[in-house]
């Protein structure tokens, strides 16, 4: 096929030969590094010379406070965080699903009229836009919004997690739906199946395990996020951590942080184990 080469072909190794392009890239990275370090006031000396306060903080945490009252508060905080993360992921998934279905680009149908295309394009872009807004606002900002609207407590925190989860899951699910093998879907369309039928029987069965896995992963992310949301008053164990920190009650902080780590690890392991068992 290819025309015969007249010159000796140069293949080269895996590492590109030195040229001005990689050199420029290295220069740009170095420049960005210096600029950013200066911007944030990066000071290694300060970090190394301020070991005193860090030492005091850490040694102050030991022994952790294991009194009955603290354990009770910790347990309540952990459970609340767990509930927030679970509900957040579930509600997020429920909201994400229809949005993702509309945000899934169907292959161009041959001969579709202008009106038909418009009918498809409008919900597509609308749901993409909603998902983008949901996703690009961090959950802690959503929490601030909901705390202002609904007051302090775990409920606004849960809503914040749900909205952010919906944004992330919606995007990932629509990508999963778009990337499933299209030939079975086309085969259905070729026998006269409509858009709904091709979606339900062609795309969805191929994407459902992926969606379950993504939702479980989002739950893992939520339990980590839920520990932070308390800092803005949106419930969960973070609220307890913040209070204890402000009271310099470091032994109690140690207990709370330790319990948080355990809770996160448990959910991570559980979710990973379930995801491993999913059949694709």
């Amino acid at each position: 096929m290819a025309s015969p080469r007249t010159e000796q072909p140069r293949i080269g190794g895996a590492v590109p030969r030195v040229s001005w392009k990689p050199a420029l890239v290295v220069l740009v990275i170095l420049g960005l590094t210096g600029w950013s370090a200066a911007g944030v006031g990066f000071d290694l000396v300060e970090l190394l010379s301020s070991t005193g306060p860090i030492e005091r903080f850490i040694s102050g945490m030991f022994p952790p406070d294991l009194s009955a009252r603290t354990l009770q508060t910790t347990a309540r905080g952990v459970l609340e965080t767990f509930q927030m993360s679970f509900l957040g992921a579930l509600m997020g998934a429920v909201v994400a699903f229809p949005l993702a279905a509309f945000a899934t680009g169907e292959d161009a149908t041959v001969g579709a009229s202008r009106g038909e295309r418009l009918l498809r394009v409008v919900p597509y872009h609308l749901s993409r836009f909603i998902l983008n807004v949901f996703r690009s606002v961090p959950d802690i900002l959503w929490a601030l919004v909901f705390v202002v609207a609904l007051g302090l407590g775990p409920f606004p925190g849960t809503l914040a997690l749900a909205v952010h989860s919906a944004g992330i899951l919606g995007k990932l699910l629509s990508e999963t739906l778009e990337s499933v093998p299209s030939r079975p879907v086309e085969a259905l369309r070729a026998t006269g199946a409509g858009a709904l039928q091709a979606f339900l029987f062609g795309r969805l069965p191929q994407a459902i395990s992926g969606f379950t896995s993504l939702t479980l992963y989002q739950w893992e992310c939520n339990i980590r996020s839920a520990t932070i949301l308390g800092f803005v008053g949106a419930g969960g164990i973070g609220q307890q951590i913040l209070i204890s920190m402000n009271l310099f009650d470091y032994p109690k902080v140690a207990t709370l942080v330790g319990a948080t780590i355990v809770a996160v690890l448990v959910v991570d392991r559980f979710s990973a184990a379930v995801r491993r068992r999913l059949v694709y």
Binding site: R183, P184, E186, A187, T191, G192, F201, P205, I208, Y280
Partner: peptide, 14 residues
């Protein structure tokens, strides 16, 4: 019109 293909084109999860 019924079609049948080299790659079967069934939905493998169903």
């Amino acid at each position: 019109i019924g079609s049948i293909y080299q790659a079967y084109n069934l939905v493998p999860q169903l």
